Amino acid sequence: MSVWQRPLRQLLSAVQNITSRFKSNSLKGFVSLFLLGVLFSVTLAACTGSNENSSPTQSPAASQKQDVEVTLVSFAVTKAAHEAIIPKFVEKWKQEHNQNVTFKQSYGGSGSQTRAVIDGLAADVVHLALSGDTEKIEKAGLIQPGWQKEFPNNGIVSKSVAAIITRAGNPKGIKTWADLTKENLKLITADPKTSGVAKWNFLALWNSVIKTGGDDAKATEFVTNVYKNVPILAKDAREATDAFAKQGQGDVLINYENEVVLAQQKGEKVDYVVPDVNISIDNPIALVDKNVDKHGNREVAEAFVKFLYTPEAQQEFVKLGFRPVDESVAKSKEVVDKFPAVKTLGTVDDFGGWSAVDQKFFADGGIFDQIQAKIKR
């Protein structure tokens, strides 16, 4: 018998003796019973409270929130950056909320990742190569409209520009986009009908004409002459890079600047040019609303996305060759020294956004198909 059970039983016995002396319909009996009830309640609370305070053991889980899991789906070239950033966020969240966060991560081509999410990959956060892919997930009903306004910079969390990679010593003397129309030059790039990177490559070429005073007719003529120098269109950016770097095909390759920087960091010697008329390759991030609500992890997923915009996280993107979206980081000496200046920078919004771009350039029968029909391979 516990230390509080004995006096409690004694109290119950006294109550029974007293109540038997009063009739329930007498005023005196009613008042007496009421006072005894109050005394009994106070005594019981004191006894049981004493028992809780004196409990010798307590489950560790009682003082710790339930663990939470977040699934991040991103395009391939962000993997190294996220693997550096995620442990920093996990540690910060643990310190501030006493809760463990684990991440499931999936990386691959932006287009294939988009299709996987639409087909059922339960992503909580998507970080993709272009807003057009995020918009496809929105149209599938998984992301609520207005996702661009939920986070800074219209949802753009990382960015790059287009670069022209040459053979060692740049034997073809490539300096600008216009040089890609030279005779006896072979350009390696992917097919924009199947590759997100290749869409950016195409826009970089088109933008170089529009931003220097040309119209659609001149841009079409120029881009047609460039693609005449493409011996075969690779399926995706990785295949194009392998054809150039591993198989020795072609004289030049168009790729993301961050891919070039990463290759250099791995010890590869890469010669490249960043034309001073360029396109801002903007990579958006968004919560997959349907999934975070189903998983009940919106608070953590949202906090993670916001963390990616902090100078601490942006520095990790910079290390991997991405240009920062944080202004304080962008103005740092490290960034200014690391990235060549771009004189004229276009954006996809200059061309009406991705829906308009896809319809005009990459839909069946669009400008890209028209250009391909003109080329004799």
Score class of each variant (00 low, 15 high):
residue 205 L to G: 10
residue 206 W to L: 01
residue 206 W to F: 09
residue 208 S to G: 06
residue 208 S to W: 00
residue 208 S to V: 03
residue 209 V to T: 08
residue 212 T to H: 02
residue 214 G to D: 12
residue 216 D to P: 07
residue 222 F to Y: 07
residue 222 F to Q: 02
residue 222 F to P: 06
residue 224 T to W: 11
residue 224 T to E: 14
residue 224 T to D: 09
residue 225 N to E: 14
residue 228 K to P: 04
residue 228 K to L: 12
residue 231 P to H: 01
residue 232 I to P: 03
residue 232 I to Y: 15
residue 233 L to G: 05
residue 233 L to S: 09
residue 234 A to C: 03
residue 235 K to A: 13
residue 236 D to S: 04
residue 237 A to G: 03
residue 239 E to F: 03
residue 241 T to A: 10
residue 241 T to K: 09
residue 244 F to R: 01
residue 245 A to I: 15
residue 245 A to F: 15
residue 246 K to V: 01
residue 246 K to W: 02
residue 247 Q to C: 11
residue 248 G to A: 08
residue 249 Q to S: 11
residue 250 G to W: 08
residue 251 D to Y: 02
residue 252 V to H: 09
residue 252 V to S: 06
residue 252 V to M: 04
residue 252 V to I: 01
residue 255 N to I: 06
residue 258 N to V: 02
residue 258 N to G: 05
residue 259 E to P: 00
residue 261 V to S: 14
residue 261 V to A: 14
residue 262 L to T: 14
residue 262 L to F: 15
residue 263 A to I: 12
residue 263 A to V: 10
residue 263 A to W: 06
residue 263 A to L: 10
residue 265 Q to P: 01
residue 266 K to C: 12
residue 268 E to D: 15
residue 269 K to I: 14
residue 269 K to V: 15
residue 269 K to D: 08
residue 270 V to W: 06
residue 270 V to N: 13
residue 270 V to Q: 14
residue 271 D to L: 10
residue 271 D to K: 08
residue 271 D to G: 07
residue 272 Y to L: 13
residue 274 V to E: 12
residue 275 P to A: 04
residue 275 P to E: 01
residue 277 V to G: 00
residue 278 N to C: 05
residue 278 N to K: 03
residue 278 N to W: 01
residue 278 N to L: 03
residue 279 I to N: 07
residue 280 S to F: 03
residue 281 I to Q: 08
residue 281 I to C: 05
residue 281 I to A: 00
residue 283 N to G: 07
residue 283 N to S: 11
residue 283 N to A: 13
residue 284 P to L: 00
residue 286 A to T: 05
residue 287 L to E: 06
residue 287 L to P: 11
residue 287 L to T: 12
residue 287 L to C: 09
residue 289 D to S: 12
residue 291 N to D: 02
residue 292 V to N: 10
residue 294 K to F: 13
residue 294 K to W: 09
residue 295 H to N: 15
residue 297 N to G: 03
residue 297 N to E: 05
residue 297 N to A: 02
residue 300 V to M: 13
residue 301 A to E: 11
residue 301 A to P: 07
residue 306 K to M: 01
residue 306 K to L: 09
residue 307 F to T: 08
residue 308 L to P: 00
residue 310 T to Y: 05
residue 310 T to Q: 01
residue 310 T to W: 04
residue 310 T to M: 05
residue 311 P to D: 08
residue 314 Q to S: 04
residue 314 Q to I: 01
residue 316 E to T: 03
residue 317 F to M: 02
residue 318 V to W: 09
residue 319 K to V: 11
residue 319 K to R: 12
residue 321 G to A: 04
residue 322 F to M: 09
residue 323 R to P: 10
residue 323 R to D: 12
residue 324 P to R: 06
residue 324 P to K: 12
residue 324 P to A: 00
residue 325 V to R: 14
residue 326 D to N: 15
residue 327 E to K: 14
residue 328 S to D: 11
residue 328 S to K: 08
residue 329 V to F: 04
residue 329 V to G: 05
residue 329 V to A: 04
residue 330 A to N: 03
residue 331 K to W: 03
residue 332 S to A: 09
residue 332 S to H: 12
residue 332 S to F: 10
residue 332 S to D: 12
residue 334 E to L: 13
residue 334 E to Y: 07
residue 338 K to P: 13
residue 338 K to H: 14
residue 339 F to Y: 11
residue 339 F to T: 10
